[in-house]
């Protein structure tokens, strides 16, 4: 039971939003736990948007791209939009070259822009 309630990332509540700075390596196990934690927090706080901040993430491969979109799809089913911010320029270049489309996600320039977008929802 306690493992189900594990906190893998810090989740900060700002007004109606949840801010999630992603600082860990997203492997299969952590992704599952992060998704559970996030769904729980969305349910508890009734947040209308989640901001995923990936400033600290140095590599986003196809698997991480998939899991970010999947997380956003889950959040959407709970009535919550997901905004991604902080993609580093070399990461953006790599994703563009691979042809990755981040479905379900709204991408913001930076945290400030993400907060503006979240507020206008």
């Amino acid at each position: 039971m306690s493992s189900n309630l594990e906190r893998v990332v810090p989740i900060l509540q700002i007004a109606d939003f949840l801010l999630v700075p992603i600082q860990i390596d997203l492997d299969d196990r952590t992704v599952g736990r992060l998704q559970q934690q996030l769904m729980r927090e969305i349910e508890r706080t009734r947040a209308k948007a989640v901001i995923l901040d990936v400033r600290m993430v140095e590599v986003i491969d196809s698997y991480i791209s998939y899991t970010l979109s999947e997380t956003a799809a889950m959040a959407r089913l709970m009535g919550c939009r997901t905004i991604l911010c902080g993609i580093q320029p070399p990461v953006a270049l790599t994703l563009a070259q691979m042809g990755v489309v981040l479905e379900e996600l709204t991408v913001a320039r930076d945290l400030e822009h993400a907060l503006v977008l979240a507020s206008s929802l």
């Binding site: 491969d61 196809s62 698997y63 791209s65 998939y66 070259q97 691979m98 042809g99």
Partner: peptide, 8 residues
Amino acid sequence: SLGIGLSG
């Protein structure tokens, strides 16, 4: 998965 690993 997206199925774009190898082509990527």
